[in-house]
């Protein structure tokens, strides 16, 4: 029992996931800066590795302002629910073994539902702050969800179909028993669709339309400062971890790899982190080389090209598998 609690709280549970997600934010920011020929954060700790932690503590220690016009309930609870949802989602990731801390049949579906729910929370957060710009941002977030959600689901389902399992554990085990990763073969297109739509899910450039700084200040998060903003930033980092981990699990074999007797959890973790950092690097390069699109461009792109491609891929996968 005590081991189970430690597993949930420390490794590979909450503490480990939080630390890794802050580390991922650092990798993302540093690489992004290097791709732009800048240095990036570099004064907080060695190579600026403590930058996300410094940001977090600073935000947590700031004054807490609730605008008079805001909906108190939504303004208080959405920042708490957002990181909780994503942290709960991260518990499904198979980090230190072929199955996550929670592993049930169909947890892939639960993860997809959690991610959509997160967007709903963002919508509520934006509308709850009762600000014009936040309201525009929130509406854009919801509108964008209509565009990317179905291709994202279909891309992940393609992985599930080729592994013939809807649970992450089953997907990992199928890749171990086939001896090759799902990305080998037609699923490379699925992986590409996943990368594009996950970027939209995380509202990163070129899909950072809900937060477009130059047009609508900070989008849905415009009224959130201090510790509420800290929680939202934390949930973004957790989402980065969740989606890179999910991409690594479904398409790159997750924590599987050559094992040595006795060192399995350690090696599993190393493989998982290495593969998800690869996905993270792809995310970052994607973010660095594109500029922001308009909301109508995103919607027409995803409905005209991504969606038929994803449906075609499902059919191909169904025939091949």
């Amino acid at each position: 029992m005590i081991w189970k609690i430690l597993e949930v709280l420390i490794f590979p549970g909450a503490l480990f996931i939080l630390a890794m997600s802050l580390f991922y934010e650092w990798v993302d920011r540093k690489l992004y800066a290097r791709l732009q020929n800048r240095v990036g954060p570099h004064l907080a700790g060695p190579f600026g590795i403590f930058q996300p932690i410094a940001d977090l503590i600073k935000l947590l220690s700031k004054e807490d302002i609730v605008p008079a016009a805001a909906d108190k309930f939504l303004f208080t609870f959405t920042p708490i629910i957002a990181p909780t949802l994503i942290l709960f989602g991260c518990m499904f990731l198979p980090i230190a073994g072929p199955s996550g801390i929670i592993s049930i049949n169909g947890d892939l579906i639960i993860l997809i539902a959690l991610m959509s729910l997160f967007t709903v929370i963002i919508y509520l957060a934006g509308e709850g702050s009762n600000n014009r710009l936040a309201s525009i941002g929130a509406t854009r977030a919801a509108l964008q969800l209509v565009g990317y959600e179905i291709p994202l689901t279909l891309a992940l389902l393609c992985g599930a179909i080729s592994a013939r399992s809807l649970s992450l554990r089953g997907i990992v085990e199928a890749q171990t028993s086939y001896g090759s990763w799902i990305i080998a073969g037609p699923q490379i297109i699925g992986f590409a669709i996943f990368i594009v739509t996950a970027q939209a899910e995380m509202e990163r450039t070129p899909f950072d339309i809900p937060e477009a700084e130059q047009e609508i200040v900070a989008g849905w998060s415009v009224e959130y400062g201090g510790r509420r903003l800290a929680l939202f930033r934390l949930s973004r980092d957790l989402e980065l971890f969740l989606l890179s981990g999910l991409g690594a699990t479904v398409f790159l074999g997750g924590p599987s790899g050559p094992l040595i007797q006795g060192l399995e959890p350690f090696l599993h973790t190393i493989y998982f982190i290495a593969k998800s950092v690869v996905v993270l690097v792809i995310f970052t390069i994607f973010r660095a080389i594109f500029a922001r699109l308009r909301i109508d461009q995103v919607l027409s792109f995803s409905w005209r090209y991504l969606m038929p491609l994803a449906i075609l891929l499902v059919i191909i996968t169904g025939v091949v598998a």
């Binding site: 800066a33 800048r38 240095v39 700031k62 998060s221």
Partner: peptide, 22 residues
């Protein structure tokens, strides 16, 4: 903010909203 000076070295980010800024 440009590569030559890069204020993000100090951890500084340019924010749009007064609620986020220090």
């Amino acid at each position: 903010l440009t590569p030559r000076y890069d204020v993000e070295r100090f951890g500084a980010l340019l924010k749009g909203s007064p609620r986020h800024a220090d």
